[in-house]
Simulated assay, not measured.
Amino acid sequence: MNLQQLEYFKKIAETENFTTAATLISVSQPALSKAISKLEDELKVPLFQRNKRNVTLTSYGKSFLIHTDLALLQIEKGIEELKFMVNSEEGNISIASTHCIGTYFMPFIISGFLSISPDTKFQFNHQPTSKIIKDLKEGKISLGFYEKNDNLLTNTEIESIPVKKEKYVLIVAKNHFLAKETEVSLKDLKNESFIVYCDENKDKMLSYSEFIDYTPKVSIQPSEASMLGGLVAAGVGITIVPNTPLINTNTLSIVNIKEDIGYKTIYMGWLKNSSLSLNTTKFKDYVLSLI
């Protein structure tokens, strides 16, 4: 049994026709028939029921197709992983992060690493967490940076390590009556209008039900997190965000929140049992050293 026979078998199963399958994979029909006959002889079961025009899978064929699909998928993943390993040996590190994390966290991390490894090249994308996890599983990226969500808690294929915690704070315009306060309680914001960016963790910033007895008023929900600061500065409303260096304190005031509403935690993740390149491993260890 060889890879070619498995690919032939899969294509015939898909087309249910030897002639069509032979055309699609650019092989003669006699050669295709001979390869499948050898496979059936080796397995000692018929894989196809031959009819006048088409063929259909036998019960043996249906069962074997499930394992054939898995085997070909694993081989494809292995090929992709080797391609990325080759690229990484040339200095490339393939990573992705959510848009917010990529805006204010990743530039500092990458800049710091380049100061000690200046020849490194990064392949870097902004993606939703779900796409990052998918690409990690498929070997399209080596490392991902995201905020952990419920889907990750049940995902056993991905190793997720917290690398950064950021306290949530309230930001208001400079002319807002709370601008000169150092601390405020969520209970005192009942009459305020909130600006909320909803990503995959929808409504998370307004879900503090144990601290408040009201439903916050939402004045606007921008499509980009980067719009929050500008809208707050313009007096459209107030918002709760992670305390990051990107908050423009020239136009905004940062106010601590009295209640302990937790932190935004940034996670770094990779596919368990995957073979990371030397450069990727070096970068991963660098990020972990900053914890």
Results as ranks from 00 to 15, higher is better:
33 S>W: 03
27 V>A: 08
132 I>L: 07
105 F>D: 04
267 Y>Q: 01
214 Y>T: 02
79 I>K: 13
115 S>C: 07
117 S>I: 04
13 A>R: 00
284 K>M: 12
26 S>G: 13
103 T>Q: 12
246 L>D: 14
210 E>N: 12
225 A>V: 12
234 A>D: 15
198 C>E: 12
219 S>E: 14
209 S>Q: 13
31 A>S: 14
172 V>C: 04
138 E>Q: 11
124 F>L: 10
211 F>C: 06
142 S>N: 11
18 F>E: 13
11 K>N: 14
119 D>P: 03
31 A>Y: 02
223 S>F: 13
88 S>P: 06
56 T>Q: 15
48 F>N: 01
277 S>M: 03
151 N>F: 13
151 N>D: 12
177 F>S: 15
200 E>I: 10
72 L>D: 04
147 E>Q: 05
185 S>W: 02
289 S>R: 01
248 N>V: 09
108 F>T: 15
108 F>P: 09
72 L>G: 03
61 G>A: 08
100 C>W: 09
203 D>H: 11
226 S>R: 15
68 T>Y: 10
57 L>W: 06
54 N>Q: 12
118 P>E: 04
205 M>N: 07
86 V>K: 12
116 I>D: 09
98 T>S: 13
127 Q>Y: 10
197 Y>E: 08
196 V>Q: 01
125 N>H: 10
17 N>M: 04
54 N>F: 10
269 G>F: 01
234 A>T: 09
131 K>E: 13
139 G>K: 07
